[in-house]
């Protein structure tokens, strides 16, 4: 049914999307197999974890058999994977032995919200800062913002978080610390409690984003089309926002994609600092208690999110630059 250019375009798009999906599935397969293999090498024996001290040989053998630990790795992997695709990630091997999917369903929204809020804030801060710096490279604002970014980057996030708690929660009393309200219990309360941890995350990201975007803006502003926009009488704000920003945001988008995936699994420090029930706490807690099933499930979910986010970021390049819309992928 290839006739009009539109049909052709649909055909091409469909092929591209299918190709992309196949790639993603392959990546997830490799990641999950890798995780499964690594976790199986953990030196804690889940049967021992479950039974504790006073166990008999027979009980031990029965539990190992029940958990499928005597099967070959690939059989166990297949067993786990076939359940995982239906949304069943198994049960925890430590008390209270609850379902892992439920535990992740509880922790994931916290981490996703923190990551998204933190990224959103960072984006909101970095765009005006980068534009202001790039307007006069080497000028006073540029040097001040550059030094500030370097300073923020060199502060470890636990220290930044402690400072934020000291000033904004304990000192000024504007925000609560160490509380969490679920999104379902009212968005106002939820944002109020999420603000400080999100700000802690946003600080370091802002510093990084600002430097990257500023550099790309400075390069873009040397381009001929900026001169030609200027020669049309367009003002500096118009040129920054409408001409320079989009062609300068590739590195920023890439960094955001990587960052978003990374943050969901690794905001442990911030979660600890603010006592938040997120993915980081879940994974660390599970790893410490030898709860290998939970680690497996959580890592798989994080990997899925990571891969999907980066697929979205890749798709956004087409929006940023129309020249690559039909070129590849």
């Amino acid at each position: 049914m290839i006739g009009s250019p539109l049909d052709l375009w649909k055909e091409e798009t469909l092929t591209k999307v299918l190709k992309r999906v196949a790639e993603l599935v392959a990546v997830l397969f490799i990641v999950s197999l890798g995780t499964f293999w690594l976790v199986s090498k953990m030196d804690t024996d889940p049967a021992v974890t479950m039974l504790g001290e006073g166990r008999t040989e027979a009980e031990y053998a029965a539990v190992r058999d029940d958990l499928g630990l005597n099967d070959p790795l690939l059989v166990r992997y297949w067993d786990w994977l076939s359940h995982a695709v239906t949304g069943d990630l198994g049960k925890s091997v430590v008390p209270p032995y609850n379902g892992i999917s439920d535990r992740i369903a509880g922790a994931l929204p916290v981490s996703v919200e923190l990551a998204v809020l933190g990224m959103g804030m960072a984006l909101l801060f970095c765009i005006p800062l980068a534009m202001w710096s790039a307007y006069r490279p080497g000028g006073r604002v540029d040097r001040l913002v550059g030094a500030g970014a370097l300073g923020v980057l060199s502060i470890p996030s636990f220290l930044a978080g402690l400072l934020i708690i000291m000033v904004l929660a304990n000192g000024l009393g504007w925000f609560p610390r160490a509380q969490w309200t679920r999104l379902g219990d009212g968005i106002g309360q939820n944002l109020y409690h999420a603000f400080l941890p999100a700000l802690t995350i946003a600080l370091a990201e802002t510093a990084m984003f600002t430097r990257i975007l500023r550099n790309d803006l400075v390069t873009t502003l040397q381009d001929d089309f900026i001169m030609s926009a200027k020669a049309k009488g367009m003002g500096p704000v118009h040129i920054m926002v409408s001409d320079a920003l989009r062609p300068s945001s590739f590195s920023l988008m890439t960094l955001m994609g990587i960052g978003l995936g990374r943050l969901i699994g690794s905001t442990v420090i911030v979660e600890y600092l603010f006592a938040l029930p997120g993915m980081g706490s879940l994974v660390i807690g599970a790893a410490n208690t030898g709860d290998f099933v939970t680690v497996q499930g959580a890592v798989l979910v994080i990997a899925v999110i990571y891969v999907l986010t980066n697929a979205l970021i890749d798709a956004s390049y087409g929006y940023l630059d129309p020249r690559i819309r039909r070129a590849h992928v």
Binding site: D224, F225, S228, D243, P247, L320, P322
Partner: peptide
């Protein structure tokens, strides 16, 4: 250079 005088994303 008309190849560079127009903004590629506009």
């Amino acid at each position: 250079d008309p190849m560079t005088a127009l903004n590629p994303v506009k």
